[in-house]
Design a protein around this nucleic acid. Structure first.
Length: 63
DNA sequence: CTAATTTT
DNA sequence: AAAATTAG
């Protein structure tokens, strides 16, 4: 549906406000070149500004 | 630059 | 089509 599995809240730095907030990602995916270690990315919408922003997720986030 | 993904 | 996200 949204991401996959039980999406939980993550502490992320809201790049639009500069504040740290706990949000659920709209969607998450892994990012990285084929032969490199991949990182996890989530897309969020700031509750303050309504702006979208992406942020890295913890490596153990259920994607 | 490469990777995926979405919003602008 | 561009930007943004991380790091090797």
């Amino acid at each position: 549906m949204s991401s996959e599995k039980t999406r939980r809240k993550v502490q992320v730095l809201d790049k639009t406000t500069g504040k740290v907030v706990e949000l659920e990602p709209i969607k998450t995916w892994t990012l990285g070149p084929r032969d490199r270690v991949k990182i996890k990315i989530g897309i969020f919408k700031s509750p303050e500004t309504g702006r979208y922003f992406r942020a890295r997720l913890p490596d153990d986030y259920p994607v």
